[in-house]
C-alpha cells in the first residue's frame, strides 16, 4: 500500500488504446501537499494518466493508489475525494454559471453549497455574471468556471489539466496564485501544463514524460543535472586574457565570453565565487554585477524530450 507521505503512488501504470501505447509502465509517487508537474509533448499521455488517476478510465495494466484508495478497486471513493479540471471544460450551456456549479456541488454532496458556490464564483471573478447561461461565456470564463467546479468539494487531491490555457495574462496570474494558495492549504496538486515558465514557478517537482518517464526532479535539480550551474560576471570590458585567467582555476568547468560578460561554469558557486571575484579584481577587471544564469526550463525540457 501507499506510504503515509505519498498522496499518489503509481506502479508500472500502462494504458493502451488499440494500437496506441498512451502510457507505458509509468512509476512515480506524488508527495502529499506538493505541486507535481506533469510535462510532456502533445500526445505524451498526460490526460490519459489523469483520467486513470481520477477513475474515469481503467489502466490496461499496473496499479495506482490515490489518497490511499486503489484505482480500479475503490473508484467510488476516489471520485468523491479528488477534484479534476478536465481538458475540455464542458458545461451545460443553457444553464447559468450558478446552476452549473450547484448541480455539480450537489453531486459531490458539498456541505453549505450556496456559500461555496459564492466563494469560488467571487474568487474567480464570475459572481456578477452568475445568472447568465454558460453558453454566452468566453473561453476563459468557462475555464474559470471549470476550475471552480473542480474545487467546490474541497478535494484533497486535485488534477488540473492545463488550467491556464485560454486565460488572459491577468487571469492566468490569478489562477497561478490561486494554485499556490491551494498548496498552502495542504492539498496535493497534479498540474499538466505546456507553459514551462508556469511549471517552473509553481511546481515542487516535475516529471517530464512521453509515454514513459524521462526525468523527475525539482526544477532546479533538473537544470543542474543537465546544464550544471553558470555564473555571469558583467565587466566594464571583457578582455580575452581575463577569460584565460579564470580558466586556470581547476574548479572552473567552462568559460565563455559574450559581449562584456564572462559566463563561467561552476559546480559550487557559493564557495567558488569569492575566489574568482578576488582574483579577477586583482587581475584588473572592473566588475559591474555578478549573478547566476538561470537556465530556462524550456531548454531543460527540449533537451529531455528531444534526446
Amino acid at each position: 500500500m501507499s506510504d503515509q507521505e505519498d498522496a499518489i503512488v503509481i506502479q508500472e501504470l500502462t494504458k493502451s488504446f488499440d494500437a496506441v501505447l498512451a502510457v507505458d509502465r509509468l512509476s512515480v509517487s506524488v508527495h502529499a501537499g506538493e505541486i507535481f508537474g506533469l510535462l510532456g509533448p502533445n500526445g505524451a499521455g498526460k490526460t490519459t494518466t489523469i483520467r486513470m488517476l481520477s477513475a474515469l478510465i481503467g489502466p490496461t495494466s499496473g496499479r495506482a493508489w490515490v489518497a490511499g484508495y486503489e484505482v480500479g478497486k475503490q473508484n467510488q471513493e476516489i471520485r468523491s475525494t479528488v477534484g479534476i479540471l478536465t481538458e475540455s471544460p464542458g458545461m451545460y450551456d443553457q444553464l447559468s454559471a450558478e446552476r452549473n456549479l450547484s448541480f455539480f456541488g450537489e453531486m459531490y454532496e458539498v456541505a453549505d453549497l450556496p456559500a461555496q458556490v459564492e466563494r469560488y464564483l467571487r474568487m474567480l471573478g464570475l459572481w456578477e455574471r452568475r445568472f447568465e447561461p454558460v453558453g454566452t461565456f468566453s473561453k476563459g470564463m468557462r475555464q474559470k468556471l471549470a476550475i471552480a467546479r473542480a474545487l467546490l468539494h474541497e478535494p484533497k487531491v486535485l488534477f488540473l489539466d492545463e488550467p491556464t490555457s485560454g486565460l488572459d495574462p491577468e487571469a492566468a496570474l490569478l489562477v497561478r496564485q490561486f494554485i499556490a494558495e491551494l498548496r498552502e492549504e495542504g492539498r496535493t496538486i497534479v498540474l499538466c501544463t505546456h507553459n514551462l515558465d508556469e511549471a517552473d514557478r509553481l511546481c515542487d517537482r516535475i516529471a517530464v514524460f512521453k509515454s514513459n518517464l524521462l526525468a523527475l526532479d525539482t526544477p532546479n535539480a533538473l537544470r543542474r543535472k543537465l546544464f550544471g550551474r553558470k555564473v555571469v560576471f558583467h565587466l566594464v570590458t571583457a578582455k580575452p586574457d581575463l577569460a584565460e585567467f579564470v580558466k586556470q582555476h581547476p574548479f572552473v568547468q567552462s568559460v565563455e565570453v559574450v559581449d562584456n560578460k564572462l559566463i563561467v561554469g561552476l559546480d559550487d558557486p557559493e564557495s567558488q565565487n569569492p575566489l574568482l571575484i578576488n582574483g579577477l579584481v586583482q587581475a584588473g577587471a572592473e566588475i559591474q554585477f555578478v549573478g547566476e544564469v538561470r537556465q530556462r526550463l524550456e531548454d531543460v525540457y527540449m533537451q529531455l524530450v528531444n534526446a
Partner: peptide
C-alpha cells in the same frame, strides 16, 4: 457531445 459527460462521470454518481 457537449463534453459534460467526463465531469459528470468524474463525480461520485453510480
Amino acid at each position: 457531445s457537449t463534453r459534460t459527460l467526463e465531469p459528470l462521470l468524474a463525480t461520485p454518481i453510480k
